[in-house]
Design a protein around this nucleic acid. Sequence first.
DNA 1: ACTCGGTCCTGAAGGC
DNA 2: TGCCTTCAGGACCGAG
Length: 261
Amino acid sequence: MAGQTIALVDVRRPDLRWPFPARMAQRLCGQKITGLRRRAKYILADLASGETLIIHLGMSGRMQIDGPFQDCPEPAKHDHVIFHMQTGVRVVFNDARRFGAMDLCQTDQIDSHRFLAKLGPEPLGNRFDEAYLRKAFVNRKTPVKSALLDQKTVAGLGNIYVCEALWRSGIAPQKPVSKLTAKKIAILVPMIRQVLGEAIDSGGSSLRDHLQTNGEMGYFQHSFSVYGREGEACRTSDCKGKITRIVQSGRSTFHCPRCQR
DNA sequence: ACTCGGTCCTGAAGGC
DNA sequence: TGCCTTCAGGACCGAG
C-alpha cells in the first residue's frame, strides 16, 4: 500500500471493537499512503491528508492483499473493510471475532492517541534494555508473565511470545518481577528479541486465524518450545521436566516447572 | 496506584 | 447427528 493511492474503501459494517471514526471511507478515499509504519501491535498508515489510519488486528484479524483484479470478487465472510487501491489491488481486513479496531487521527498527534499514549518501549528498539527493565520491575509484585504481557511494560509481546521468551530465559512465569536478579533480566532482554526476530522471519504463528498478507500461513508454531505443548517433555538439554499449563490472570501459561526457576 | 476477573465476539474442538 | 461446554494470537473497564 505504501506509495499507492486508495481509490475506494468498502466499509461493510459500522464498527469492530469500537465504532469506526466519522466518515472513515470518505476520509480515506483518494488519499495517497505516504508511509506505512508500526507501533506495538498497531499498523499505522500515514495519509497525504495529514491523518494516520490506525489498525489493530485483535485476536483473529488479518490483512490480505489480493489482485490486481479487473472486477471485484465477492467478499468472504468477516471481510469487514476492503481497501481498493488505484492499481486494482485489494487489501482486505478480515476479523471473525471483531476484537480488532480502526481509527483516524492527526499524524502529528499520533503519540497521544488513546491507543498509543500509554504504551511502553518497542521490544526491538534501543529504549528497551536491561536498565529499563530493571527499573520497570522495581517494587512490583506482579508475576513476570503478566508484567511482560502488559503493553505498558513493553509493547508488542503477546501470550505465545512471552511464554517462549520465559522458557528460553529459564525464568518461572509466576516469579514476582521485583525478585528477578539482574543476571536473569540481562538474559531475558536478548531472549525476547530473539523470539520475536525468529517469529517475524517465520511469518508469524498460525494457530487458527493468522495469515500473512500473501494468504500463506506463518510457520513459527512449529518452533514453539512450550506453547500448546502441555504434557510433553521439556526440550532443554538434560532437563527431565514436563511442560505444564497454568492460568495467570485468565490466560494460559505454558512452562517447565523444572528448568524455569 | 495496583491487580484481578469479566467482557466483547465467533468458531472450532471435544464430551456425551 | 446434535447439543452443550470450553477455549482461543487482545486489551479495556470497573471493582476491590
